[in-house]
């Protein structure tokens, strides 16, 4: 049996191609990229919000890149990155309740976020581009400068398809796309308050809806019918279990 980190010949080729492409991106954009990596055959670049439009335009128009399609664009909220609900290093008398009542994602504030990770800002926008002519993909990320009012320039001028993807990111994360022709909510209800995919938006929601027979209309009230709960606590295990297992198998000649 092959170990977990062996890659077949086909993927080795993809990994080499992604690395070469990352280098060509770094050579073209230089300082404008805050990060440029190729992992598992996927190329990721990060740009400052000020360079967002410029880099995207170059990626679409220049002959070396020619990314004709914006396949996907989404918002990401990095609040609570790397935070676990079940801290196995601390032993306390609280027992199991640590897991189910802990400060999980969606239940702590931006101020209380873990500080030891290299995430500069809370909100990011990630776009996936596809080049039909070169058969290549690239992922472009930009962190929004302002955590209170995150914003980025719109891509609707470059790809019409960005329209709904940006509306979705605005609806779910509250990221404002400057210059967007029609920045309305798209997935949530008419008159919805808040941005539900933010990590500090509770999973059970803020309001629930029911029909009030006395008022003879539908009313919105604070949620009382369900309680927030955690069935399986979130744990972060970066203990090299997988490398270990594959190394053991290599030594032992496979099981």
């Amino acid at each position: 049996m092959k170990s977990m980190f062996d890659n077949s010949a086909a993927t080795q080729g993809a990994i080499a191609a992604a690395e070469a492409f990352a280098q060509s991106l770094a050579a073209r954009f230089g300082e404008r990229l805050t990060r440029c990596v190729a992992e598992r055959g996927e190329t990721t670049i990060e740009v400052a919000p000020q360079a967002w439009l410029e880099v995207m335009t170059a990626l679409r128009d220049e002959a070396d890149f020619r990314f004709e399609q914006l396949t996907d664009l989404c918002g990401v909220d990095y609040l609570s990155w790397g935070e676990a609900e079940w801290d196995t290093t601390d032993v306390s008398a609280e027992g199991f309740s640590r897991g189910v009542e802990g400060e999980g994602p969606g239940r702590f504030s931006w101020a209380g976020r873990p500080r030891d990770v290299a995430i500069p800002h809370r909100f990011a926008v990630v776009a996936h581009l596809l080049s039909i002519s070169h058969n290549r993909r690239v992922r472009v990320r930009a962190f929004c400068d302002d955590d209170e009012l995150p914003s980025l320039p719109t891509l609707t001028g470059l790809w019409s398809g960005a329209n709904w993807f940006e509306r979705e990111a605005f609806d779910l994360f509250g990221i404002v796309f400057e210059g967007h022709p029609d920045l309305r909510r798209i997935l949530t209800d008419y008159g919805f308050v808040g941005h539900p995919f933010r990590k500090d938006f509770p999973l059970i929601g803020n309001v629930e809806v029911r029909y009030d027979p006395e008022k003879q209309r539908v009313v919105y009230e604070p949620v009382t019918s369900v309680e927030p709960r955690v069935l399986v606590p979130r744990v972060v295990r970066d203990d090299s279990r997988f490398e270990q297992a594959s190394a053991e198998r290599k030594l032992g000649g496979g099981r």
Partner: peptide, 23 residues
């Protein structure tokens, strides 16, 4: 497509499903 971001936990940090019909 599924765009999956993991922070090393037993749950996804962010999952984005790219749906063709949406586009």
């Amino acid at each position: 497509a599924c765009y999956l971001i993991s922070d090393g936990a037993n749950k996804p940090f962010r999952l984005k499903c790219r749906a063709p019909s949406f586009a």
